[in-house]
Design a protein around this nucleic acid. Structure first.
Lengths: 114, 114
DNA sequence: ATAACATATGAACAGATAAACATATATGCA
DNA sequence: TGCATATATGTTTATCTGTTCATATGTTAT
């Protein structure tokens, strides 16, 4: 049939799947996105922001972490456009940047609750 | 008003958010779930399985990784109930265990495509 | 029984990463 | 201007994680 180097399955299937695979770069970006949700601190922050915008210190207090830790994670979230920041005097209020975040987390929750 | 240790925001807000937060364990599990999607190899495997069930060697070939690497990641996916395995002689065919996987990935993709 | 194939497992190594600590920037107030 | 507050940044460290290599298990055919 063909000159496969292995024999375990039909090359037709492999070929068909290969054609439908999105480009590597897209899959890489997708993994990077999920990686951001893959940390307890960040998930907690996002979940907290479901309810209302919050300043850094509130987030830190809420989660029982240091201000530094909160700031570092907020930076990650902001860099990846999952949260946006609003400045008000000394304080910076963070909020979810769009409802995709909510949807993704909700979908994940559904999978957990079983 | 109250005896906050910090002064940047109203404790009312923090209190309200705190009450609506899911238990820590649930948020931990949620992060653990997303962590699994947060790896290029695993995302590729899952995406490949969108199309059809595949044996280990096919997956390895498809992604251009070693059989060992594929096996290790499939173990992670199986342990976390994201894929299931079907044995057929020498071969083991893996497939998605439920459509939550598809939904979660699709939701992620939507966020990427912007 | 033995050889070839398909997959799994265990250990070791390298790269990634989250938290902690110290410090810097910036804003508001006396 | 000087001081306290709010947040950010840089660096180091400890931990985690994915891959590789070597090897083991299990299956089929001759």
């Amino acid at each position: 049939m063909s000159d496969n180097e292995y024999l375990c399955a039909e090359s037709e299937t492999v070929k068909a799947v290969l054609e439908k695979m999105p480009p590597d770069e897209m899959l890489y970006d997708l993994a990077e996105l999920f990686k951001i949700f893959g940390d307890t601190t960040r998930v907690k922050i996002l979940y907290a922001l479901f309810e209302s915008e919050l300043c850094v210190n509130d987030i830190a207090t809420l989660l029982g972490i240091t201000q530094t830790a909160a700031s570092h994670q907020l930076r990650v979230l902001k860099t990846n456009k999952l949260v946006k920041a609003r400045k008000n005097g000394k304080m910076i209020f963070y909020s979810l940047s769009d409802d995709h975040v909510t949807k993704i987390i909700s979908q994940g929750m559904e999978h957990i609750e079983e």
